[in-house]
């Protein structure tokens, strides 16, 4: 009865009202910390990153080679059939250029983030990572990229063991 309603409830306040003490409130900061276990598939994946390699799992029923690897095929709903190394190169599926940090503050050097379809995995099997060694204005869809790894002694078994992906010429792959 939108048109028949004379007024809509809601007492508007401004964010500044809190600062200025015009609106009383109770403040609270949760004191919780988390440790997320990586699980079966991710533990192996991260171990392999430490070795400078990307590993996938595959499913013989649908023939998919899956990155990030999982222990089950969500299409066939059965255990994956095994592990398989894939390349550390890929293609930019989509990308974006972030000018802000997590708290919405401006950052000096924009971050290029991309979904990279990994070579050797099934088509469209991408991972999220950053793009480097290129001006953001030069990035293109379909661009070939290759992982830039941290030196072995600095790797800890994390997705950040890959510093970023950098553009490469097709023939050098």
């Amino acid at each position: 009865m939108s048109e028949k309603i004379k007024s809509y409830p809601g007492f508007r306040i401004r964010t500044a009202d809190f600062r200025e003490g015009k609106v009383p409130y109770v403040a609270y900061r949760p004191k919780v910390r988390y440790a997320w276990s990586a699980g079966i598939a991710m533990s192996r994946f991260l171990e392999e990153l430490k070795n400078g390699r990307i590993i996938a799992t595959y499913c013989n029923s649908c023939g998919r080679i899956m990155v990030p690897p999982r222990v089950f095929c969500e299409e066939c709903f059965k255990p994956a059939d095994g592990w398989k190394h894939v390349k550390d190169t890929g293609t930019i599926n989509t990308y974006s250029v972030s000018f802000i940090a997590g708290d919405a503050s401006r950052i000096k050097e924009p971050i290029i983030v991309a979904v990279i379809d990994i070579d050797g995995a099934s088509p469209g099997m991408g991972i999220l990572h950053k793009i480097g060694e290129i001006d953001w204005k030069e990035v293109k869809f379909g661009m070939k990229v290759k992982a830039v790894w941290k030196p072995p002694e600095e790797r800890v078994g994390s997705i950040t063991d890959i510093k970023y992906f950098k553009p490469v010429k097709e023939e050098t792959l």
């Binding site: 972030s98 940090a101 997590g102 983030v113 991972i127 999220l128 990572h129 997705i159």
Partner: peptide
């Protein structure tokens, strides 16, 4: 896979 990269909400929409 995503949080260690500093993923923010807007990234995924932008992508």
């Amino acid at each position: 896979l995503a949080r260690p990269l500093g993923t923010t909400l807007i990234w995924i929409f932008a992508l």
